[in-house]
Amino acid sequence: MTNQELLSIKNLSVVYNTTRGRLIAIDNFSLGLSEGEIISVVGESGSGKSTLGYAILRILPPNGKIVNGEIHFNGINIIQLSEKELRELRGKKISMIFQDPMTSLDPLMRIGDQIVETILEHEKMDKEEAWNIGANLLESLRIDSERMYDFPHQLSGGMRQRIVIALAIVLNPKVVIADEPTTGLDVIVQYQILDLLKRLRDERKISIIFITHDLGLAYDISDRIAVMYAGKLVELAEKNKLFDRPLHPYTQGLLKSIPELSIDSKNLVSIPGYPPDMVTPPRGCRFHPRCPIAMSLCRQKEPKLIEVEKNHYVRCFRSGEVAFK
């Protein structure tokens, strides 16, 4: 991967210690993000996609641990930073938008106070100045700045998510990790949020890691799409390439399972089976128990991530075969 990457993740592995044993949430994951790029990380629940966001900011829960790998931001290895250096990084260089706008705002703090609090944590200025920055930011996100005086419960879900986004970008970070930011919002609001994120990328050159389980949203917003399965990166490509010529059977299954709004499509296609238990993942390729084209080699050996064509990576033994689409 190239040198001008803003954020590069190399061979990252994250493990959770659970009562049932070690759960490998992310296994040997690599990904690079360029300036102004939007990458979607797509996968089912439990595929490790949210853990990825938490790992980058080093805010994993206490039982979670990065056991291997490097995360470089602008040449600094985030894994080696001290708590104090991390605090300076968080919010100011990399920030995160959380899944649930209903619970990611402090219910007892006014919107304005939360924004001011965030600014003052990083910048030396007086409260009034910070308040004005917040008000201007809200206006630029097309939110009435009078909302600064409101408490979270006074706002609608879409409005709250825009506040959460405002909090994430108020310090002009370079990278924003958006962890399913549109979950629980209706479709129209979902697209407003996507448009907002795209605008932020265009206007502020913010790079975005967009974590989602919805391939439709991923296609709409991103430049490249990374597909994760059971903690592994299984396919990575530019979005049109991934949609036109998906090479991993899991990606193909995901694409087939997008419901179509046409008259003759009556059946909703789904991938049979369930995601594997990550404490005892299957041997060989992790997808083989659910794979329609698995062969005996897949049960024995783990395939490597290979670049089948330029900038199109896939982790499958049979990706080279033409027959398989």
């Binding site: 805010i59 991390l86 968080r90 920030s95 959380f98 990611s104 959460v164």
Partner: peptide
């Protein structure tokens, strides 16, 4: 989640305890 969110924007421990946890 709002405490995790506060950590993710770089809030100090003191701020988190005094401003986010205590009032609740």
């Amino acid at each position: 989640l709002y405490v995790t969110a506060a950590i993710s924007i770089g809030a100090k421990r003191r701020t988190i305890i005094a401003r986010y946890i205590f009032p609740n």
